[in-house]
Design a protein around this nucleic acid. Structure first.
Lengths: 244, 244
DNA sequence: CGCCAGGTTGATTTCGCTCAAGCAATGTGG
DNA sequence: CCACATTGCTTGAGCGAAATCAACCTGGCG
């Protein structure tokens, strides 16, 4: 048989295991019922797109399991990864609100479960319940801050320092950390996407990884990474600054 | 005598000349009155800060005249300009919503008039009128898109191409354009800030400018710029792409 | 077996940063 | 009115980081 991309019926948001971490947690009563009525859950395999840039918006998505990447691509096909999305996050609210096409693509990095919510339902709730809009607003401002932080980093830090930052972040999210300051991780991304996250080419990333291994700071074997001393790794980037 | 930084009393938002371009345009009746009650207008001279990174948020701001720059600075003092703000725009809503300190600084580039709105007033309106929150949400998503666009550009385009983009944008906003495709502008920023907008050093920008002059694409004399053929300038960046 | 995608490595060159000096305009105090 | 500091901008030399082009390796798969 093998895997079939299963489409589930209407799950009930009230009993969803991530409900209290979502933007919808502020809803009650009729709004909550209306939400559940507009929801369909579906599984996505790695590499599969939830939506792609250029498509018209068809509603909003909410992640209930897995990990997704939000990519932006230019006319020449260069792609950067602008965000990693995890369970509880809302996707596609931007194009939903601006009423146009998706400007980014959302792609599963692991087998993921994503709920689709009908436009009508969201629009109706947004129109009379200020709380939901404020939740979205909070999400948007946090993402904006993340983007500004990335802009600052990309113009002040070296590629090497940015990659170390990224690695530390992925270790926190996806990794297993030992009590001795070590950590292991199965990377959810291939080298190209990893390079896209720090705004460089995959060849350059390959060299950076080679250097980190030579210095004994980390072991890479395909997507498996082992870091003996996370503190030493992070010390690297502090030491990048002038010893003033 | 000379100029004194004048603080005006409470202007009436309903009669403000930019009112219909602001986020507040959706307010009516009592909300509008409450807004006007919470407002103070004040003039800022070039270089003066409306708020600075690290300060606690004390309310939000609305620009009624001039031009401001939103800067983000890191620990080493490197600064980038993340946004140019014009009349009608709302400032400081991010830290206001997240309840913390300002993560960016807002600085006048021209003599500017900015209204301050008391936190209480905004919080009260946001709590019961969904429309205002949705306006803010729209603003946040547009800024987010702008930030993502900048991230993509900074990792795919050369400094030269980014500067040409910026120049074209400033020409649209601040410049006078002739019917023959020419354009003139008095730059609202010094070289350092200009460099900060494209994520490079001022020396590098200076060289880029020198090259553009040598190629006859633009004339720079201090902050005065004249472009003979905007089309040719923009053609440059299209031509940067491989002639495939 | 050949093909292909993902990854590594090498050689070369371009780009932009750093450090440093120089220059013009402006302001300041004696 | 002159010596002097200050600020904003430009220029030069040298260097290092990273992009580019290209070859090559590896494991999976029809």
């Amino acid at each position: 048989m093998g895997r079939e991309p299963c489409i589930f019926g209407q799950p009930d948001c009230r009993s969803c295991h991530v409900f209290k971490h979502t933007d919808w947690q502020v809803l009650e009563g009729a709004d909550l019922a209306a939400l559940s009525d507009g929801v369909t859950r579906r599984e996505y395999q790695p590499g599969e797109a939830v939506y792609s840039a250029g498509e018209p918006n068809r509603g909003i998505y909410c992640i209930s399991g897995g990990a997704l990447g939000i990519k932006k691509t230019d006319a020449e096909g260069n792609a950067i990864l602008v965000h990693l999305a995890y369970p509880g996050e809302t996707l596609g609210y931007r194009s939903f609100l601006q009423g146009g096409e998706h400007k980014t693509s959302a792609e599963a990095f692991e087998p993921s479960f994503v709920c689709h919510i009908k436009s009508d339902a969201v629009r109706r709730i947004l129109g009379h319940n200020p709380k939901l809009g404020l939740q979205f607003l909070g999400r948007a401002t946090r993402e904006l801050e993340e983007a500004h932080e990335a802009m600052l980093q990309s113009s002040t830090l070296s590629n090497r320092a940015r990659f170390i930052h990224l690695l530390a972040l992925l270790l926190r999210r996806h990794g297993r950390r030992g009590p001795d300051g070590s950590g292991s991780i199965h990377l959810p991304l291939n080298r190209r996407d990893l390079a896209g996250m720090i705004g460089t080419r995959h060849e350059t990333l390959s060299r950076i990884i080679g250097r980190l291994e030579a210095e004994g700071l980390a072991n890479f074997s395909g997507r498996e990474v082992h870091v003996a001393n996370i503190g030493a790794l992070l010390g690297e980037i502090g030491a990048d600054a002038p010893p003033c």
